[in-house]
Write a protein that binds this DNA or RNA. Structure first.
Lengths: 184, 184
DNA sequence: CCAAGAGGTATACACCTGTAGACTTAGCTT
DNA sequence: AAGCTAAGTCTACAGGTGTATACCTCTTGG
């Protein structure tokens, strides 16, 4: 049994859940699995978060609230996004990115709705704030789409072509794409 | 009981499976569900396809073999892809696209591997063939990534920004992106 | 000192999962 | 008409799902 510390236990469950949901996706993870890896019984999860869905909602909120590593300078934004993206999706990179959480959980409609809300409230908003307030309203959304797609093909699917391609080439091409999308 | 026609029954199962896997993804669909909607017992699925995984493999093969509607003219390729993509992801469009099959099933690693093979053997290859044989080897893979990402955000997640944006704007921006990626 | 309540566990339910093995029946062939 | 085989079904298993109810036990406050 865990030492009786509600706050710490909650945090432990939240961490286990983030790891599990990101690794396998909402549907493929059971609450028992999450609970066990937090050193706790399954029922405690429901006591603290109401339900599996409630737990997921908190995980998403926590994952998206963390500031993304981006410049505040619109001029280097495209290059910055491209560089971070290529590095984070590299075959040897640690696999704990909010995008993976999203892509692996999105097939479940309830999870998808939670994710949509989180993205628009945090990620998309953050991107919009950095950009000069112009009339390019769909720019950030399209940038996110490209990022998501790159994650899908490079890590979920494991495209051999994207694995073989040099990182420099990918960075260059993606930078051009982001530049096009972020241009007013 | 179905009339005893092995070929027709096989086809019926295959069609039901394509529909179900595309609508809900590999993990969220049970063989009983597929069998029932084909007017058949669950065990017949395994008799014909060996296992759920075997069935999925045949579904993917069939779905990807169908020729994609693309010009053979490299000059209008970018515009063509953009137009088809925006139309097929429209909120009122019928939802039976191989990309949905892929995105909803990719979280399962075994399914992902099957999908990767299918994509590289059919879709990616088709795209490569249309392009002028240049040294832009990662072009087609990146185009697929953008398409996949757009599908994710517009239909799986349901981004309100991408729903609000006019189709013409989306088409224009995507065309520019594809042009960048397909350029040598 | 001991009772109250918070933190955590145990048991159970109703249902679904993929698939193995034994069984039945329809339809063609002789 | 009979019989054989392909086509299809039935039953069952071993395990997993989320979660509701009831229970236990440690810690703290009076």
């Amino acid at each position: 049994m865990r030492p009786r510390n509600a706050a710490a236990t909650r945090e432990a469950i939240l961490n286990s859940a983030l790891e599990a949901f990101t690794r396998a996706g909402y549907d493929a993870v059971g609450v028992r699995e999450i609970a066990e890896s937090a050193g706790v019984t399954a029922m405690l999860v429901n006591r603290y978060f109401g339900s599996k869905e409630g737990l997921f909602a908190e995980v998403v909120e926590a994952a998206m609230k963390e500031r993304t590593v981006l410049t505040d300078d619109p001029a280097t934004l495209a290059a910055d996004i491209a560089a971070v993206l290529v590095r984070r999706t590299a075959p040897d990179a640690g696999r704990l990115d909010p995008f993976l959480l999203m892509l692996r959980s999105a097939p479940n409609p309830r999870a998808a709705e939670i994710l949509r809300a989180g993205i628009e409230r945090h990620v998309e908003k953050h991107l919009t704030d950095v950009l000069p307030a112009g009339k390019n309203a769909e720019g950030p959304a399209l940038v996110l789409a490209v990022i998501a797609g790159f994650w899908v093909m490079r890590t979920l699917i494991g495209s051999t072509e994207l694995a073989r391609a040099g990182e420099a080439v990918l960075r260059t091409k993606l930078e051009k794409v982001f530049a096009v999308l972020l241009a007013e």
